[in-house]
């Protein structure tokens, strides 16, 4: 087995642009009007990934754990901000609860993976901690966004049922228990489905990358398994904390539902 990766030269990279030309021609021929988007997309892919490459090269040289953790925190801050923008909710503010739940659960999972499972020394070694953390954040961010969207939507649409339970002596947790469960499920199902389909329906990108880089497929699958279970764990923990904290904000101390219908 080949032990080192074959380098792609800049000329070869440029040759790759032929694929974009094919897509562009198809767009022109069928008047899809996608040429401009294709052009910007290609330019952004090149620019963003080259930039990322340089940043990672720089990051991997860092030997200060506080700097690595600051970068990790910044990534989570950005992810929490993305969720905040995606979940359209004006009545309650949920940025901080989401940020704290992500911080707590993602740090915990990333730490376990690098320190205990992979056994990296030191555990915060940026070459491991940052990409693994990034995969957790990227995947679980979607799960949290889906769960929160579901939670807030159901608290509004099922307002009558929730208030009926409150009127019959339920506390706010009892009254919104079904909604909480549905939101958690909605957030977790995609990562569980991914576990079902992996290796049959698709070969994960990370594993493909490792194999192309010359790794033994048997090592690559082990990493992939760790990644998959890590994502499920982070998704479960992150979604649970986020949904619990945000639900808390949707009710007053007097166990009153604060979300008003049609006032998002």
């Amino acid at each position: 087995m080949e032990s080192s990766i074959i380098d792609i030269g800049l000329g070869q990279l440029a040759l790759g642009l032929l694929f974009i030309l094919i897509a562009g021609s198809a767009s022109l021929y069928h008047s899809l009007k996608l040429e401009k988007d294709l052009l910007t997309g290609t330019a952004r892919t090149f620019a963003q990934l080259f930039l990322l490459g340089y940043i990672l090269k720089f990051l991997f040289k860092i030997e200060d754990y506080s700097l690595v953790l600051s970068i990790f925190t910044f990534m989570i801050l950005f992810a929490a901000w993305t969720i905040y923008g995606r979940v359209k909710e004006k009545q309650i503010s949920f940025f901080l609860p989401v940020f704290f739940s992500m911080m707590l659960s993602f740090f915990f999972i990333s730490f376990i993976v690098t320190a205990v499972i992979v056994g990296v020394k030191p555990w915060w070694k940026p070459q491991y901690f940052i990409p693994l953390g990034g995969m957790i954040i990227g995947n679980s961010m979607n799960a949290i966004a889906i769960a929160l969207e579901r939670l807030l939507k159901e608290l509004r649409t099922k307002r009558y049922e929730i208030e009926m339970k409150l009127c019959l002596g339920a506390d706010y947790k009892e009254a919104s228990h079904e909604t909480l469960k549905n939101a958690m499920r909605a957030g977790m199902i995609p990562s569980i489905n991914a576990m079902m389909a992996v290796g049959i329906v698709f070969i994960p990108g990370m594993m493909t990358g490792q194999i192309l880089a010359g790794a033994d497929p048997m090592i690559a699958i082990r990493y992939q398994i760790v990644i998959m279970v890590m994502i499920v764990g982070a998704t479960a923990l992150g979604t649970l904390f986020a949904v619990l904290l945000v639900r808390n904000r949707c009710f007053s101390k007097g166990h009153q539902l604060l979300l008003r219908p049609g006032n998002r």
Binding site: Y160, E161, E163, M164, L166, C167, L168, G169, A170, D171, G254, H255, Q256
Partner: peptide
């Protein structure tokens, strides 16, 4: 509040 609402029962207009 849950105890208060048990003693002061409100039955909504739309049955749920």
């Amino acid at each position: 509040p849950p105890l208060l609402r048990r003693h002061i029962l409100y039955i909504q207009q739309t049955p749920s």
